[in-house]
Design a protein around this nucleic acid. Sequence first.
DNA 1: ATTTTGTTAACTGTTAACAATTCCGAGGAG
DNA 2: CTCCTCGGAATTGTTAACAGTTAACAAAAT
Lengths: 230, 230
Amino acid sequence: MLDAVATRRSPAPTSPLGLSIAPMVLSSAVTDTLRNLIFAGELQPGERLIEAQLAERFGTSRGPIRDAFADLTNVGLLTSVERRGTFVVRLTPDDIDELYTLRSALEGLAVERAAPQIGPDDIDRLSVQLDRLDQAQRIGDTVAVGEADMAFHRTVVSLARHRRLLEGWERLGDQTRLLMQELSVVEPWIQAGDHRVILDALRRGDGVAARTALTDHLAGARRSMIARFS
Amino acid sequence: MLDAVATRRSPAPTSPLGLSIAPMVLSSAVTDTLRNLIFAGELQPGERLIEAQLAERFGTSRGPIRDAFADLTNVGLLTSVERRGTFVVRLTPDDIDELYTLRSALEGLAVERAAPQIGPDDIDRLSVQLDRLDQAQRIGDTVAVGEADMAFHRTVVSLARHRRLLEGWERLGDQTRLLMQELSVVEPWIQAGDHRVILDALRRGDGVAARTALTDHLAGARRSMIARFS
DNA sequence: ATTTTGTTAACTGTTAACAATTCCGAGGAG
DNA sequence: CTCCTCGGAATTGTTAACAGTTAACAAAAT
């Protein structure tokens, strides 16, 4: 029915046998599939998405497609104009500025909250993710780099134990991935070191240091992104 | 068709004759109506909303209702569980903490960005809104107080000229109004003065002062809210 | 050549019917 | 008395068809 069904939002309940029992809701499956198509660049910025077309492609009716459009519009990956259609967002330099200044504020708050209550297992998790990032960078796999980078940042934010903060950040995270796809950026080498500094500060439980390391890192990324904007 | 159609998101285009020409989209009308019903306390926290019921009440089919549910869920006024229904959010003390810490971060960023580029007309607008707030407080009109308070804060954020910041804040603003309704709070008297301090700092273009005044104000409101939580 | 006006095709918003799941109480077994 | 099972009712998820709007194009007028 669907090319590839990636359940992301709803962590599938499983039966004792490990089988996924949860009756799938098409809308969310479509949402995830579309998101991945966007991140993979198959749906390009500016492109118009037509309900009936996608409905046929996925073998569903237009209802679930509409729901997915609504979701992705709220996340900021699509924009929709009443009675005129919905399109993949095309980011401008102003958008980049907005993205990174906001991420800076949110992630800054996050690390300061996370630092005092962080545990050794959390540190390990972050460390593993950084290794994965290095690995991906060495190979030169753009998609994997994007994924790993965002995974690290997302984990940091999640450690603040602040639901709304995480939800708000996730929107920006998705848009950042769209940006990376749009610029087809292999993350600049600078960042490899930046991340370690953040992690070290967190390991010491030094929230203030972690914050400045993080905001510096994001300011650098922001400049670098705006610079390579064609 | 609809009891009261309040278009909030889409500022209705009007013809030279003053007639609203824009063909109304039911979904957004329903969204606004539901939001107002929630703020007015007619739909109480925890209450379950049933698609068919509301569809009949508004004289529409279930489609637009579903769309409205999706919107309000994304805003944080409703929560919906797959195949199980959607409910008016019931806020807990933890939620209050989240709301105010996040608002603090966002509005802090906002004033610092707004301060350097603020004009006399902006100051006037804010001043008028504060007068309105005082007025409402003197009369003791809870709903008007909530509206005026949120209007002031919203204007401050909008002056930062940062689309994503404003969008993110608006979700929190809506949830704050829900909170006020839930606690049926006439804003504590402290705040009257607090707001003036913020405005004065902005008038001087002093972003840092405005930030501390604002975050102090929000910290106070947070404590006061948690305190009166029954 | 350029603008204007019909005209048509495509698409979104909406509706109503169908399918599948959940909820809730009655009845029976332990 | 408690727990479990088994319908039936209620409710959400999905589908397919209809209606109004927008966009694109060709013909006519300036």
